[in-house]
Every structure is written in structure tokens, then in C-alpha cells.
Amino acid sequence: MKPTNAEGEAALTRRQLAAWYAGGYRTLASARIAGLRATSDKALAILIRSTTDLEPWLPDHF
């Protein structure tokens, strides 16, 4: 894998990542209110859709 200097299409903090993984962002509005940054609404929508139909897997000791 080659290193890159390109920025990602979305940026999440650790807390935002945990909330996203747990299904906390179901709409663009909820993601934007939580402070998620993305290059476009399309990129953010793809990120949100990637978990909307899945149940989160959480270990017994989260």
C-alpha cells in the first residue's frame, strides 16, 4: 500500500466513530449536528448508509 497525502472524504473523532458504529447517525441532519465533517453530502450519505441495515456487534464488555 502506498502512502498518500490525500484527505479522506469524511473525518470522525473516536467518539463519533463509536456512535456511527452503534447506529447513532441515521440521517444527514443527525450526522451534521454531531459535527461529522465530509467533503460532500454524498460522501456522508454513503458513510451513513453503510450501517443503516446492519445491527451493531458489541462485545459483552463494551
Rank of each mutant, 00 (worst) to 15 (best):
L36A: 10
K2C: 14
A6R: 06
L36C: 09
T39I: 13
I33W: 06
L28H: 03
W20K: 00
R15N: 12
R15A: 14
S50R: 07
G23D: 08
R26A: 01
A19R: 14
L44W: 02
A10Q: 00
A18T: 12
A38I: 01
A11D: 04
D60E: 15
A29W: 06
R15G: 15
L12D: 03
W57A: 15
F62K: 14
A22L: 15
A18C: 11
E55C: 10
S30F: 07
T4Y: 09
D53G: 07
A6I: 07
L58Y: 14
Y21T: 01
P56C: 13
T39W: 03
A31H: 01
F62Q: 13
A22M: 13
P3V: 14
E9I: 00
T52S: 08
H61V: 10
R26C: 01
A29L: 09
T13I: 02
L44N: 02
R15D: 14
G23W: 08
D41W: 03
G35C: 12
G35A: 12
I48Y: 00
R37H: 06
I46G: 02
A22H: 13
L58S: 14
M1H: 12
S40N: 08
L36H: 07
D41S: 09
A45S: 07
F62D: 13
R49N: 10
I46D: 00
E7P: 01
Q16D: 05
L47Y: 04
K42C: 03
G8W: 05
P59M: 09
L12Y: 08
T39S: 14
E55A: 15
T13D: 06
Y25I: 01
A29K: 12
T13V: 04
R49C: 06
R32M: 14
T51P: 01
P59C: 10
A38V: 05
L12N: 06
E55L: 14
H61N: 09
I48G: 00
A19M: 13
P56Q: 08
T13E: 04
K42D: 07
Y25Q: 02
A38C: 13
S50P: 00
T51K: 09
A6V: 07
N5V: 13
L36G: 05
L47S: 04
I46S: 02
E9S: 06
P59D: 13
R26V: 01
F62I: 12
A45M: 06
L36N: 08
R49Q: 09
R26M: 01
G24Q: 02
A34V: 11
